[in-house]
Amino acid sequence: MLEVFIFATLNGLVTGLLLFMLASGLTLIFSMMGVLNFAHASFYMLGAYVAYSISLYFGFWTGLIVAPLIVGLLGALIERYGLRRVHQSGHVAELVFTFGLAFLIEEAVQFFWGRDTKNYQTPDLLDFPLFTLFGQEFSAYRGFMMTISIGIFIALYYVLTKSRVGIIIQAAITHPQTVANLGHNVPLIFMGVFGVGTALAGLAGVIAGPVLTTFPGMATVLGSIVFVIVVIGGLGSLAGAFIASLMIGLLQSYAIASDVGMPDLLNLLGISFARDHPLNDLWTINLPQIAPVLPFLLLVLVLIFRPTGLLGKREE
């Protein structure tokens, strides 16, 4: 029982931290520009594919560094020549633009890389168990994923709260004109933030690709979850996104690892149903089966009891 709990916790942390890497970029972009970027997970997918292609020629480590830079640069260019122009037409136009962008990236990925799953492998250097506990191995690569994610969180926290750039970004979120009057190029800052946000999504794709498989549907798999995280954490709150990412990662991991189901609950209540009952499927459902639904359930609960999210602030 203890080993199940420990490994579920570790896997939950890995998933949660990976989700945070994706959600942090989305949060950053939303808090600065008020743009809900529906194409954010597509940049994550793009990161995985670009890194896969680079790894074929130059190895995993080159892909790890170059792919996020390429994705970030692409994101910055999209902001400069696409989103910035659309921004003048309001939020609905922005949403439609990012929606279209998501489809465009997905189609482009299928066009250039095909519809099949890519054999994107973890690097040989990390292909060993980091430790063995209760006879189960925890791979070094998962440890690497956790390290990168925690490193990103610390770096983002430092940059946003302690550095001059972070101070300018924080101020530009609420008072863009005042910041411009002080001599700072706010559109350039927005472009940089969008670029960094998409680069973070790309980085998440690079390190998740070998573990969660690199295929054209990978953006769809995580895309909706990331939005759930951003809403649960509170729109625009980085700390909220961090907490919500870990909550969802752990929640899903515990649900998958558990063997609790409706039959246990019904037995506890002294209720039993025959196997040929028309609703047998419902009575025999178990927690691992509903694990993918749990984040959305949590979202509904948060929206009912705390509509601003965990750390979100109500707009004045």
Partner: peptide, 21 residues
């Protein structure tokens, strides 16, 4: 010219509403 360019030329502006962060 854009506001940040004007500020860079050496013109400062203290707005009425102060806009302290």
């Amino acid at each position: 010219k854009k506001s940040f360019e004007i500020a860079h030329l050496g013109l400062g502006y203290v707005p009425e509403n102060r806009d302290i962060f």
